[in-house]
Design a binder for these strands. Sequence first.
DNA 1: TTGATTTAAGATTAAAAGCTCTTTATAATC
DNA 2: GATTATAAAGAGCTTTTAATCTTAAATCAA
Lengths: 152, 152
Amino acid sequence: MILSRACNYGILASLYIAKEERTKTGYTSIRHLSEELNISFHFLTKILQTLTAEGILHSHKGPKGGVMLARNADEITILDLVYAIDGEDIFTECVLGLPGCGNEEPCPMHFQWAEVRENLKDMFEHKTLAETAGEVEEMKLRLSNFVRGEKQ
Amino acid sequence: MILSRACNYGILASLYIAKEERTKTGYTSIRHLSEELNISFHFLTKILQTLTAEGILHSHKGPKGGVMLARNADEITILDLVYAIDGEDIFTECVLGLPGCGNEEPCPMHFQWAEVRENLKDMFEHKTLAETAGEVEEMKLRLSNFVRGEKQ
DNA sequence: TTGATTTAAGATTAAAAGCTCTTTATAATC
DNA sequence: GATTATAAAGAGCTTTTAATCTTAAATCAA
């Protein structure tokens, strides 16, 4: 898998929050997110703690607490989430795992891989939460881990 | 990491074998491969067993034994190795990890990801061992896990 | 001010990936 | 035949990732 499971969950949850915030204000509880998306509550809590620490979300304890986007949804990209959770390694690592691979000491796939990798990065960078959450709503795209029919 | 470590090692070893076979015939011992590439002998043995079982390599026990390419080097692509070791999952999996994601029930990144993924697959498919091993030799590209100067 | 609700934090467990060790089977050479 | 070199096979250890459990801290509302 190209992204870690934590990163998958972090993206799905952030998209869900962005979608909610199109019509309501205030915090979204992690319990609610975990139920809607079918993600373990405690695991999701940890992931969202990371996003909070990275300044992408705000959190609030107590009743009516939860998390919300710390910036405008069109100022947060999927790339921001990937960086926050998985780091930037996937955009710098050698595809054959050679330490120190780069333009100076390239592995046999370095230049081709660098191109694909750049496309991947562009893809993540051009997807804002605002735009993507909009698509999710208009096109009724999936966000949850449920398979068709299994709950909603 | 996009490919497993086992897959990295399998590719590096196969390229080394292809390079050797440009000038010599017969088997290349796994011990030799593991020393040249700085890869654990037992681990590499297992990986190459898989490639042998998949019909990509031939093996031979006893003195002067080892492994050799089972087909002509221009008839083996890096994609063949990836399929044999990691399977085809990375070319079918959802980038957000949603089960059953596809054209019918797409996740919010499905179509963009499908494109990047196809580029990645093309990249692996167009790299034959013959061509790549040639480049390694002509351009003195790296194959081993050693960092510069550490043995060479 | 007490109780309920919620995130924070850290310890623990489970599963997967990566790696090592030992033994066995086979083949070549002397 | 005995010895040595080699791959095959499988058991088992280590590290990383994923997930769970427990307790603490903060906040709100009655």
